[in-house]
Design a binder for these strands. Structure first.
Lengths: 178, 178
DNA sequence: GCAATCCGATTAACATGTTAAATGGATTTC
DNA sequence: GAAATCCATTTAACATGTTAATCGGATTGC
């Protein structure tokens, strides 16, 4: 029933190949990425309808939120804060600018750089969405438990930190035999 | 510093509007969806290179894994197991079938239904990817701690369960005043 | 100073997420 | 038993994820 732990307790990674040949892989429906995906979706499906009602996607919302709390910010930094890849951000910024929710300007000292800011309309939109968004968040916290929620977030950050220094197998900047 | 908890401790959702007008929204970089997204990405970036080296995306891998552990399975059930939406699944199955990694057949008693199964080539591909995948998973468990990993997964499942019965604001099947 | 290189941002190309609509086959209903 | 409805799957349309390539503008090296 808890075959997962048997594998996880393995201290040495050497015999993995032999093991996977005899024992089926741990049921992927219990894999960590799947658990994270399912949990995130369980949360997000409560937020999406409200955002959608205001004509926003989740990513567009993230960008507006980031801009409203950071003021003017460069595109690269915005990508880090809103946790979006460059290409996605480029497309979304083009769209948000056309909708006059953000504005951009060049950096005179380095013409490659862009500085983005939210407009008054953008702020108004945020203020329109925020109440229902906060209410949903509060209800989620109430159901799951505020303490457990804090614990969960702490563990998630810890996990992120643990993997930050883990080398990525097969990457060119690693010197291994893959 | 921990303004988040101040908001979360709110028992009644009524004064939210007034609050959000005076206090800025909790920093979204600490929001639960963001924490889940970041944690998941921290994990997945270790798996993607290996999958990619074998010509698979994460979703294609999920489907093959599901098929290898479930044998023959209907498309709808496969969508639930692999946690994919119908349209995504349709496209991916078309692709995997063209690559002869899966095969499909109609259900004679109900021609709307499809039954999908993995092919020998599909199984071979899984066996080729599994070792490095398991090794990565083991290393992640080692770094984060097997116990904490189990605890985290338990909390994630609990969160999912907590939100399962929470009504979705603004949905037609709810009888509320939105 | 200019060729090579680096770097920020965008574009390209393809895969998936997301919602709505369509298609075609079963079920129900009267 | 034909019309209406339901249902499984696919298609459509648009937004984002992901990697590679491009494009201009800065830096470096010589």
């Amino acid at each position: 029933m808890r075959r997962t732990n048997e594998v996880l307790k393995m201290p040495s990674p050497k015999p993995v190949k032999a093991i996977t040949a005899s024992i089926p892989m741990r049921d992927f429906s219990r894999s960590l990425p799947m658990a994270l995906l399912r949990a995130r979706e369980a949360v997000m499906r409560h937020f999406r309808p409200s955002l959608r009602a205001h004509g926003l996607t989740e990513q567009q919302w993230r960008i507006l939120r980031a801009l409203s709390s950071h003021g003017e910010i460069e595109v690269t930094e915005l990508a880090a804060v809103a946790y979006l890849l460059g290409p996605s951000l480029s497309r979304i910024l083009r769209d948000l600018e056309a909708r006059r929710l953000i504005k951009r300007r060049l950096v005179k000292s380095d013409l490659r750089r862009n500085i983005v800011a939210i407009t008054a309309s953008g702020v108004k939109l945020i203020e329109a969405v925020a109440p229902s968004s906060e209410a949903i968040y509060a209800e989620i916290a109430r159901r799951f438990g505020a303490r457990k929620l804090a614990d969960l977030q702490a563990m998630l950050h810890l996990l992120e930190g643990s993997l930050l220094t883990m080398p990525i197998a097969g990457d060119p900047d690693d010197d291994l035999d893959v």
